[in-house]
Simulated scan of single mutants.
Amino acid sequence: METRPVAVVGYDGAELLDIACVTTTFGMANVIGGLRRPYRIIVVSPGGLPITCGPGVVLHSAQALERLTEPLDTVIVSGGIGHAGAAANPLLVAHVRRLARLSRRVASVCTGATILAATGLLDGRRATTHWRFADALAAQYPGVTVDPDPIYIRDGEISTAAGVTSALDLALAFVEEDHGIELARLLARDLVTYLQRPGNQAQMSLFTAAPPPDHATVRGVVDHINAALDGDLSTTSLARVAGVSPRHLTRLFLTNLGQTPGRYVRDVRTAAAAHLLLTTALPLPGVAARCGLGSAETLRAAFLRRYGIAPSRYRAIHEG
């Protein structure tokens, strides 16, 4: 039987969840989909040595990284606390680069992007990694355009996923690419994942509230914004609520929230719209009106800017 060989690269200090999210998704696709060309998962490591994934967890690899020479459908590099050491290992890096040449597509999970960057495969490309390590990756590899926001990025044949469980999102996206949306949806349900998230969704959950700002004036304005999304939230109006000038309010927001009042309002309204799309049957104009975005077209523009997907498409892929 013809198969799709998928090589998952581990090493000492690789994260078990990075590996398991991938292997479980592809393995379940074989079972649920009854695939004529099933995925054949090959966990490899330098020298074929066991992969110490954490306290009390040791994973046996199926094959030595160095001995894998067959053509591959996909190669996926895991992240983990050992990623820096792996990226500094010239033999491991060379073999990952070699496997990439044998593969139709290449991916990394979490800090596995550091290893891909060390191969040079990310030079001139846009990539993501776990938000906590994004600045370090950008500083160490200036040829890579690091975007810490999306849960995964696909740039040509190379994909990079953000922290840990985003491996699940990327693997589901690969299954959708290979076998269609219906199988990907079935997998998402069987894996009991809350939703199959589009790649450009922010790493921070849409529904996880940011901690309230320490500054009392800014906190009061933020509370007002959240309570009156469909009201007048112009900077001038918000400045009146705060009892300060628009210019001073802008300075306070930049200092405490890292963005202008206008940008903050737009992001909050867009996040609220995303929540309504998933939890109500309101038509798009109704969602836009309730969140203060005015029209369906304004909602669409804000959604594309923030999440990289149209609101109608976002709702469709999460239905059922």
Rank of each mutant, 00 (worst) to 15 (best):
R4S: 04
V265H: 04
V106T: 11
L49I: 01
I19G: 05
V77C: 01
A100S: 15
S295C: 01
A62I: 01
D149K: 12
D178N: 05
D190Q: 14
L72W: 08
L191Y: 04
M28H: 10
D149I: 08
N200W: 11
A107K: 05
T236A: 15
I42Q: 02
T128I: 01
L252I: 02
C110G: 02
L116C: 09
P311E: 01
A136S: 06
L257W: 10
P285T: 12
F133T: 06
P46H: 07
E176T: 10
P311K: 03
A184T: 11
I153A: 04
S45A: 14
I115L: 12
V144I: 08
T119D: 05
E297V: 11
N256W: 13
A162V: 02
G143W: 02
V265M: 04
R189P: 00
L233I: 05
N256V: 01
D147I: 06
P5M: 09
P90V: 13
L278W: 11
G308D: 06
G56P: 04
L168F: 10
G56E: 05
L99R: 07
R101D: 13
L249G: 03
E157M: 05
T280I: 09
A271G: 09
V222T: 11
N200R: 15
R154T: 15
E70A: 15
G47F: 07
L195I: 06
D178Q: 02
P150L: 06
L172N: 00
A29I: 10
A202K: 08
V192P: 00
Y264H: 08
L233T: 13
L59S: 00
P46N: 06
T111W: 00
E2R: 15
S166K: 03
A288Q: 05
G258S: 09
L206K: 00
I181E: 14
L276H: 13
A274Q: 09
E177Q: 10
V175H: 10
G308K: 00
L299F: 12
S108Y: 09
N30H: 03
T145Q: 13
S108H: 07
F303S: 09
R97D: 14
